[in-house]
Design a protein around this nucleic acid. Structure first.
Lengths: 215, 215
DNA sequence: ATCAAGTCTGAAACTTGTTCTACATTATCC
DNA sequence: GGATAATGTAGAACAAGTTTCAGACTTGAT
């Protein structure tokens, strides 16, 4: 039995998520933060398996029941952790925008930068990405948020002047698919870092394609 | 604790997998088949969660311990199930090759045909794809086999005269990434069937790209 | 200050994947 | 055909995600 319908009056995530969950008190915000921190910490050690709900609860000084009130399942927790990390990454990436001439180059450069960041904490990457792709319907809203964040990062990297065309949005979707799936193959040891690089560069050419067609 | 090192003298899969596992006796082959059948049957009902090891064991008339000897984890079992289904699909697809003019069209057509087949058993698709992307290193060989099968299907669809170039292989990899990830978004209700179609068609244009460059 | 509603805690219970054990059955080799 | 190793069986035991519950603590409104 999975954690389908839950959350009668959940605290919910604070960051621009959902129509309007009751704003968290300070102590609640602090708890939420402690939990996410504990989650990331355990994940950094041993990946998905090392994030054990009882341990997260203990490490973040919160009762197990409380943990489940904040995050209705392990997958919810890890997806939220990913949201958190992605936000960091987004602002980090913003600081030094990619240097390439073409949009395709810039996107590839940005994704490779993100990839290198993930390589520094491969276990954390494992936990987050596995949770993301394992998530079922009950986690859709949260996964969608992650997806929007990723899209934003890619669009940022493209550095468009005009709003993106439908074609370009399609290309971005495909890039995102490739990004996630390539990460999976890397994390499960079926593809090398070099191979992931090639895959990213290959898919980024789709962007050139949509640009070329305009001419 | 996941099922890392196991399989002291496992029966192993029969179909061209690995260097040489001891050939199964007839009764063993029959057991293996019963297990896979039970797995697919339960998966067709309720997806990943509905495939419960005890139930699979019972339904296939095998002791739990035996089930685990044949398939060292639930994920192994489901990935093997996918192998099995893919083989069916491969031979089915071979019968009526895609009709499109361009390789890109033919690949898109083939994948859409496969997609429609999956739509007929969405729960089964859920179980198999989720297992595939959730698989950790201990399942790498099996996942690799699935990947090779998928690659074969795509290359078949391309209908090349010459052996594929490195570029084309890269494109195929990216198509495969997109295929898996798009399926995931569909299965978790975050993308419509139409959207998956668009994604597939978009990524297949990469093939044209590699063809165009030769000229 | 006080009452009610909503939260948090600690601990036990339940579920399902996985492992282990003691014994029965089958296969293999002489 | 019989010894012996490999395989299969039943069932208990264990691990980790999830649920539940009774009671203590906060908070917000009166």
């Amino acid at each position: 039995m999975t954690a389908e319908a839950k959350a009668v009056t959940k605290p919910a995530t604070a960051t621009m998520t959902g129509p309007a969950s009751p704003p968290l008190t300070e102590r609640q915000e602090a708890r939420r933060r402690r939990i996410l921190h504990a989650s990331a910490q355990l994940a950094s050690r041993g990946g998905f398996d090392a994030v054990q709900m009882r341990e997260v609860a203990e490490l973040s000084q919160v009762a197990l029941g409380t943990l489940y009130r904040y995050f209705p399942s392990k997958v919810h927790l890890l997806v939220a952790t990913m949201q958190d990390q992605l936000q960091h990454m987004h602002s980090t990436l913003r600081k030094r925008p990619p240097a390439g001439e073409e949009p395709a180059e810039r996107v590839a450069e940005t994704l490779m930068r993100a990839f290198r960041a993930l390589q520094r904490e491969p276990h954390l990457a494992d936990a987050m990405v596995r949770a993301l792709t394992f998530a079922d319907r009950s986690v859709s809203p949260e996964v969608d948020t992650v997806s929007r964040l990723t899209t934003a990062i890619i669009l940022d990297a493209m550095g468009l002047e005009a709003p993106p065309t439908a074609e370009q949005l399609s290309a971005v979707r495909v890039i995102e698919h490739t990004w996630h799936s390539a990460l999976i193959t890397w994390l499960s040891g079926r593809a090398s870092i070099a191979q992931v690089k090639i895959d990213i560069e290959t898919v980024c050419r789709l962007i050139d394609l949509t640009a070329a067609e305009k001419a």
